[in-house]
Computed example of a mutant assay.
Amino acid sequence: MQEPASDQSRIKEIQSALASLDVDIKLLRLGMKAGFNPSQPRVPAGDPDGGQWTDTGAGGSDNPRQSTFRTADRARIVTRFGAGHSIADPRSRHTVTLANGKRFVFETEGAVQSVFDGKGRPISKAIWTPAGPESLPIVQQAGLPAREAVDAFEAARHLYNRLTAGNSPEQRACLAFTATEFEPDSTLPTVNFVGMLSRADTAAVCSRLDTVQRLADEASVEARAAGTYPNPAVYGTAVHTRLSHKIRDLGDPSLRPERSLTKKIEEAPFSNAVRVDVLEDHGTGPICVYDLKTGRRGLSKARTLEFGVRLAKYGRPIIVIEIRPFE
Score class of each variant (00 low, 15 high):
residue 3 E to R: 15
residue 7 D to G: 01
residue 16 S to F: 08
residue 21 L to S: 14
residue 22 D to S: 15
residue 24 D to V: 14
residue 29 R to S: 14
residue 32 M to N: 14
residue 33 K to D: 14
residue 34 A to I: 09
residue 37 N to Q: 11
residue 41 P to Y: 06
residue 42 R to L: 15
residue 44 P to C: 08
residue 48 P to V: 10
residue 49 D to M: 13
residue 53 W to P: 11
residue 58 A to W: 09
residue 58 A to E: 11
residue 60 G to S: 10
residue 61 S to G: 09
residue 64 P to V: 07
residue 65 R to A: 15
residue 70 R to F: 06
residue 71 T to Y: 03
residue 72 A to M: 11
residue 73 D to V: 08
residue 79 T to I: 12
residue 81 F to H: 10
residue 82 G to W: 06
residue 84 G to L: 05
residue 86 S to F: 00
residue 87 I to N: 02
residue 88 A to D: 13
residue 90 P to A: 03
residue 91 R to I: 08
residue 92 S to G: 06
residue 92 S to P: 01
residue 92 S to W: 02
residue 93 R to L: 13
residue 95 T to Y: 01
residue 102 K to Y: 07
residue 103 R to C: 02
residue 105 V to G: 00
residue 105 V to L: 09
residue 105 V to D: 08
residue 106 F to W: 01
residue 107 E to M: 05
residue 107 E to W: 05
residue 108 T to A: 03
residue 111 A to V: 06
residue 112 V to Q: 02
residue 114 S to E: 08
residue 114 S to L: 01
residue 117 D to Y: 01
residue 118 G to P: 05
residue 118 G to C: 01
residue 119 K to C: 02
residue 121 R to H: 11
residue 121 R to P: 03
residue 125 K to H: 05
residue 126 A to P: 03
residue 131 A to G: 09
residue 132 G to A: 01
residue 134 E to V: 15
residue 136 L to S: 06
residue 137 P to K: 08
residue 138 I to N: 00
residue 140 Q to R: 15
residue 142 A to E: 12
residue 147 R to Q: 14
residue 151 D to V: 00
residue 151 D to T: 00
residue 152 A to F: 02
residue 153 F to E: 09
residue 154 E to N: 14
residue 160 Y to P: 03
residue 163 L to C: 02
residue 167 N to F: 00
residue 167 N to Q: 02
residue 170 E to N: 13
residue 175 L to Q: 00
residue 175 L to H: 01
residue 181 E to F: 07
residue 181 E to H: 05
residue 182 F to E: 10
residue 190 T to Y: 08
residue 195 G to I: 05
residue 196 M to N: 04
residue 202 T to H: 02
residue 202 T to F: 04
residue 203 A to V: 00
residue 205 V to M: 00
residue 206 C to W: 00
residue 209 L to K: 01
residue 213 Q to M: 13
residue 214 R to N: 11
residue 217 D to W: 04
residue 219 A to I: 04
residue 220 S to R: 01
residue 226 A to C: 08
residue 228 T to K: 13
residue 231 N to C: 09
residue 234 V to D: 08
residue 239 V to A: 04
residue 241 T to K: 13
residue 243 L to W: 06
residue 243 L to N: 01
residue 244 S to I: 06
residue 246 K to A: 15
residue 247 I to Q: 03
residue 248 R to N: 10
residue 252 D to Q: 12
residue 256 R to H: 11
residue 260 S to E: 11
residue 260 S to I: 04
residue 261 L to Y: 11
residue 266 E to T: 14
residue 267 E to D: 15
residue 269 P to F: 08
residue 272 N to T: 14
residue 272 N to Y: 10
residue 274 V to T: 15
residue 276 V to Y: 03
residue 278 V to K: 06
residue 280 E to C: 03
residue 283 G to T: 07
residue 284 T to I: 10
residue 285 G to R: 07
residue 287 I to N: 06
residue 290 Y to L: 02
residue 290 Y to S: 03
residue 291 D to I: 09
residue 291 D to L: 10
residue 292 L to G: 02
residue 296 R to E: 14
residue 300 S to Q: 10
residue 301 K to S: 11
residue 309 V to F: 11
residue 315 G to H: 12
residue 316 R to Y: 05
residue 321 I to M: 12
residue 322 E to N: 12
residue 325 P to W: 09
residue 326 F to S: 14
